[in-house]
Design a binder for these strands. Structure first.
Length: 272
DNA sequence: ACTGGATCCTGACTGC
DNA sequence: TGCAGTCAGGATCCAG
């Protein structure tokens, strides 16, 4: 389920349960994720204290006394905190990170596109993290920088903002929504967009992600304590998944095309 | 250097 | 009911 707001919500949800606690065991039931969970990880992490729980892009980074556990939720992954008697694992509950005091972080991922890795060195030097673009909610991501990057690019602007080397954390839903909010056609070649319009696009990306993280907070409690997973954030979607429905702004029917194997939704009248 | 396409995997849904 | 086809929140890899 995860786009960046859900990953951030997950991080905030698991943080208080993991921070300052010691890992009793890592119990792996299915190691075949996006990359196999390396065989040595359980013995390496056992007995270590969790010193930090951070996020970079859509990776969740658990800093240990030695090294960092790197988690990723892929397309269908979720984490929840269990306490007390552990329920029998459901299908696709691939690992449990068992902490002191009966706290358990259980990972569920039907499609197995997620990951759990460990690195000894600085996490940001890990090959998966080393070449990532700026975080979208920091000042390192701005209109001028995006405009400069786009100069040589013929690729559709939607592909550009979903490129993790350009900016991280903009998934398909938010790419569609931010482009709608900025009035930019998703298939417009990246180099054919003015600096002013990129400034607006950056503002809208930040706004939609921020709003989504805020509303995600309301489902947090259920997410980490309750049974099952939440639905989507209580985010008002204008175009994503709204094929054929009328544009909230001009009533024109929302259209959908496929671009880069992803569903692309837009208003042909408002977005140019 | 860029770009589009294939790919990993399971499950939900649609249409016949 | 069953079966085939399509699509889904990600992101890497590879050919051209």
């Amino acid at each position: 389920m995860p786009e960046l707001p859900e990953v951030e919500t997950t991080r905030r949800g698991i943080l208080p349960h993991l921070l300052g606690r010691r890992i009793r065991a890592l119990n792996v039931r299915e190691s075949r994720l996006r990359w196999p969970i390396p065989a040595e990880v359980p013995s390496v992490v056992q007995g270590q204290w969790v010193r930090s729980v951070e996020r970079r892009a859509k990776y969740i980074l658990m800093g240990l006394d030695q090294g960092t556990l790197i988690g990723h939720l892929g397309m269908s992954g979720s984490m929840r905190i269990l306490t007390g008697n552990l329920p029998v694992p459901r299908k696709h509950d691939h690992f449990d990170l068992l902490m002191e005091e009966g706290v358990c972080l259980r990972y569920h991922d039907p499609r197995r596109f997620g990951a759990l890795l460990w690195t000894d060195g600085p996490a940001d030097e890990h090959p998966l993290l080393a070449h990532l673009g700026p975080e979208p909610l920091t000042s390192a991501f701005d209109g001028d920088g995006l405009y400069a990057l786009a100069r040589q690019r013929k690729t559709p602007v939607k592909s550009l903002i979903m490129d993790n080397q350009v900016v991280v954390g903009v998934g398909n839903i938010y790419a569609n929504e931010a482009l709608y909010a900025a009035g930019i056609h998703p298939l417009r070649p990246a180099r054919r967009i003015s600096k002013a319009r990129y400034a607006s696009l950056v503002d809208e990306i930040k706004a939609v992600l921020t709003r989504s993280i805020e509303t995600g907070g309301t489902t947090l409690r259920d997410y980490v304590n309750g049974e099952g997973t939440p639905g989507y954030f209580a985010l008002r979607l204008n175009v994503y998944g709204k094929s054929g429905e009328s544009c909230p702004r001009c009533r024109e029917p929302i259209r959908t095309v496929r671009s880069g194997q992803r569903g692309t939704f837009f208003c042909p009248r408002c977005q140019r």
